[in-house]
């Protein structure tokens, strides 16, 4: 089991891109020259999936060898990038936990934030380390049975999250989250149909 990244975004409706509020990622198991691309890709995928998660919805998207879990809690989006072995319930409890923590720290002020925060967030980084063990997160679920009240929507590919006529490739090209280098990497990986490496 592995959590690669946790991100928190502000939902700006399904037409505008969400605002990045906090993110933490662990890319140590990628090659040195892929790490920054992977980080950028995580932000990009977070925005793409987050934008398409309606209020109070939970959805999970399979993307390459990852599962991207997303929860929109009253306009605050929490996302977890985990591998397939990570239990679904555990992942959503982690998201619940980090959203609660964020709300506690921000005390409602997040709704007025309009600019991206790309700085590292120590408590989120700590949470990333702590919840690598899903049973740590699941301790919470034993109490929070409400988790499964709303149904979790599962998507086999990221394309099924996108609106009709939208293509991931064109989103990649338009994205401001991805540097030229990352875009080249994305295309290369896609061309080689590589089993891995880049999100």
């Amino acid at each position: 089991m592995k959590i690669t990244a946790l991100t928190i975004l502000k939902f700006n409706g399904d037409t505008a891109d969400p605002t990045l509020l906090a993110n933490a990622s662990d890319v140590s198991n990628f090659g040195y020259f892929q790490r920054s691309s992977v980080r950028e890709m995580i932000i990009f995928v977070s925005r793409t999936v987050g934008k398409r998660t309606p209020l109070q919805r939970r959805q999970s998207v399979e993307h390459e060898e990852y599962m991207v879990h997303c929860y929109n809690k009253n306009g605050l989006l929490g996302l977890a990038f985990v591998d397939r072995a990570y239990p679904l319930r555990g992942a959503f409890s982690v998201i619940n936990k980090i959203l609660e923590e964020y709300e506690r720290q921000a005390v409602g002020s997040w709704s007025s934030i309009t600019t991206d925060n790309k700085d590292s967030v120590p408590w989120l980084q700590e949470a990333l380390v702590k919840y690598q063990d899903p049973s740590e997160a699941d301790k919470l679920t034993k109490i929070q049975r409400d988790l499964d009240e709303t149904k979790i929507i599962l998507h086999k590919t990221i394309d099924s999250v996108l609106a009709r006529g939208e293509k991931l490739d064109s989103l990649v090209e338009k994205s401001t989250d991805l540097s030229m280098a990352s875009q080249v990497f994305y295309k290369q990986a896609k061309k080689a149909n590589s089993c891995c490496v880049i999100l």
């Binding site: 090659g31 040195y32 020259f33 892929q34 790490r35 920054s36 691309s37 980080r39 950028e40 540097s179 030229m180 280098a181 990352s182 080249v184 990497f185 290369q188």
Partner: peptide, 17 residues
């Protein structure tokens, strides 16, 4: 301890931390 085969090594094209 690590080699990467990358499309280009120019400073702006190399994705680095």
């Amino acid at each position: 301890d690590e080699v990467g085969l990358v499309p280009s090594v120019s400073a702006d094209a190399l994705p680095l931390e």
